[in-house]
Amino acid sequence: MADLATRPPLLHLARSRLRLRPGQTGVVIAGLVLLVAVVGSLLAPLVWPLDQSAVALDQTRLAPSWTHLAGTDDLGRDVAHRAVYGLRVSLLVGAVAALVATVLGGVVGGIAGMLGGRVDRLLMRMVDTIAAMPHLLLGIFIVAMLRPSLGAVIASVGLTHWLSTARIVRSELLSLRTRPFVDAAISGGAGRFRVLTRHLLPHVLPRLALATTLMIPHAVWHETALSFLGLGLPPHLASLGNMINDGQGSLLTGAWWASLAPGAVIVVVTLAIAVLAARWRDRLDPRVRAELHL
């Protein structure tokens, strides 16, 4: 009880309410960052509307100041303001693309894992073949076939990132299928559908949800990369990749801040998601769980 008295009461309260232990501060910070990022990008159009096509040629390349927190770019646009809208796009693309990839990977991996045999071999060779191609290149092909738009970017990221999910789901199902509790269920009269929904999916779903979460930062980077290459959203729309790309030119004239804010936003937000997902993964792993006393 001694340390109870010496601890600052507010910190103690926060820790006990959140069931926090020392060392979990990173998780809390990551959670707050993500909360601010999500709430901020959701509320942005209401509290801080942006005219995407507006330029102010009398205010180009202003250094960061109190009026322009992250400076202005070479068209006089406020970098901080546009970064908020860029984050909106990135989070949307990241989340939707990760979801598309999960559903696709879940279905393919599910079919392969449940049916096994020839179907499994065929599907998995297909996965191997697609995986053999560089996925950024594949993504570029997909965007090039469609018109540059939000949908095209989502399709490009979603269609190139389902492979690992398919492999995870397949291998989980293959190993679960042979477990004695599945034998016991069959012997007890359960049909294929019952075994799948009652005994297999509930074991796979947490891993699948985790894989999706881990994929969001990756999908965000991918969107940024496509935009940076000029294959993402139309150039006048704020996206983190577009902004970093635009900022490149300003960099040579000494306006280093034009790329800094969008770059920093991407690093901080994806790091926050990754930290939370890693924590979640640890909770799922019984061995790590025992070590952490969860």
């Binding site: 004695p180 034998d183 016991a184 269920a185 012997s187 007890g188 009269g189 005994h199």
Partner: peptide, 16 residues
């Protein structure tokens, strides 16, 4: 199927 029941060696493995 339900006329034949099995009791497995390891209850850990046989229980979901």
């Amino acid at each position: 199927r339900t006329r034949v029941a099995v009791l497995f060696q390891s209850p850990r493995a046989a229980a979901d």
